[in-house]
């Protein structure tokens, strides 16, 4: 370096949270959200459509089973599956890919449960509107796979998208869960930062549950 270089500026660039800038550190946590979104949505989206298709729905409707009970019953079975999947994904991410986990496991557990319930309820909601499984499948793919993969900020940064897509991404639960996962894995921050996201996941699960139940109720009357 020559000493005579007149006004010189020394740009010191430091990287926080992911100092070696490894892409796996942000892809793996995001992937957990994407896998859960697709899996959970797909798991339940066919369940009620199937009952309609094979003609069992009329029988179910004639029993004293209440819609809320049906939604919760259908959801709980898949909830166990989804939870097992998320534990596997977490363990594989931390052990095989040695992605650091710096946050609170409790917060991770709570937000995973909230996200999982929301997406499972969403699947049931779709399913209760569809009469065939093909229809439910197509709707499920459109509303879980696509936003889960593209509008969640998993790989493609939401900030750089056109405004319309940014607004649409606001109602994609995976967006909030991806933010929670990335923060928990890499930043190690807690509820003080992630409260908004957790509240959204809670609201999403509640609203979608309520919508699914009321949709089933209406079909009962018909």
């Amino acid at each position: 370096m020559k000493a005579n270089a007149a006004p010189a500026i020394d740009a010191r660039i430091r990287v926080w949270y992911n100092s070696s800038l490894q892409s796996k550190n942000f892809v793996v946590p995001g992937l957990i959200a994407v896998i859960l979104m697709i899996l959970a949505g797909q798991l339940t989206s066919l369940t009620i459509a199937r009952e309609w298709e094979i003609g069992a729905m009329e029988q179910i409707l004639s029993t004293p089973l209440r819609p809320a009970e049906m939604v919760i019953g259908k959801m709980l079975a898949y909830f166990a599956v989804g939870l097992a999947d998320s534990i596997i994904a977490l363990v594989v991410g931390v052990t095989v890919f040695s992605v650091p986990f710096r946050g609170s496991l409790l917060l991770l557990g709570v937000s995973t449960c909230l996200f999982l319930s929301g997406v499972l309820f969403w699947g049931i909601f779709i399913s209760s509107g569809a009469r065939t499984q093909v229809e439910a499948y197509q709707l499920g793919m459109l509303t879980t796979f696509l936003p889960g993969f593209l509008l969640s900020g998993f790989v493609f940064s939401i900030d750089t998208m056109p405004k319309v897509l940014q607004v649409i991404s606001l109602i994609v639960p995976a967006r909030y869960f991806v933010a929670i996962l990335k923060s928990l894995f890499m930043k190690g921050v807690g509820l003080e930062v992630l409260a908004d996201q957790v509240i959204f996941l809670m609201l999403f699960a509640t609203i979608v549950f309520w919508r699914a139940v009321s949709k089933l109720k209406r079909q009962r009357v018909v």
Partner: peptide
């Protein structure tokens, strides 16, 4: 000094 959030590499 430039301090970067490296979350998204």
């Amino acid at each position: 000094q430039v301090l970067l959030d490296g979350t998204n590499s």
